[in-house]
């Protein structure tokens, strides 16, 4: 699978409604962040958890979020961020940064 995003792209984390083993935490779903790098291509843990090892590999990105976008009650300065790894199929294009 080809990577759909590049460094600096704005991306939104999807609500996929999947059950089973998921490595995309609830707290980033629906949120918009910025791709900081492509980590590489890895087998999807959602499939590996049920023994499906055939692939294909999936692009994995590090995505950076402003803490004030993640938490309405964030107690800290506006420049604080959170960086987390998200697989390609959990992402769609985000809005332009305001």
């Amino acid at each position: 699978m080809k990577s759909r995003f590049q460094t600096s792209d704005r991306v939104r984390v999807l609500h996929l409604g999947k059950t089973g083993h998921i490595r995309t935490p609830f707290y980033v779903r629906g949120k918009v962040g910025t791709v900081s790098e492509l980590c590489g291509y890895f087998l999807n843990p959602e499939d590996l958890a049920v023994g499906k090892t055939a692939g294909p590999v999936v692009p994995l990105y590090r995505v950076s979020f402003r803490q004030t976008d993640l938490w309405p009650d964030y107690q800290g300065p506006a420049h604080d961020t959170l960086c987390i790894e998200i697989y390609d199929h959990w992402l769609t294009e985000g809005q332009e940064a305001s």
Binding site: T24, P25, L60, R62, S64, Q75, P77, T81, E85, I86
Partner: peptide, 26 residues
Amino acid sequence: RQILSEFGLNLPDDIELVVHDSNADM
């Protein structure tokens, strides 16, 4: 920042804090 304070590290606001959630392969 509250967690860091509990560990005795009080970070001034002008220092940017980046938290990494080690959730996948890295």
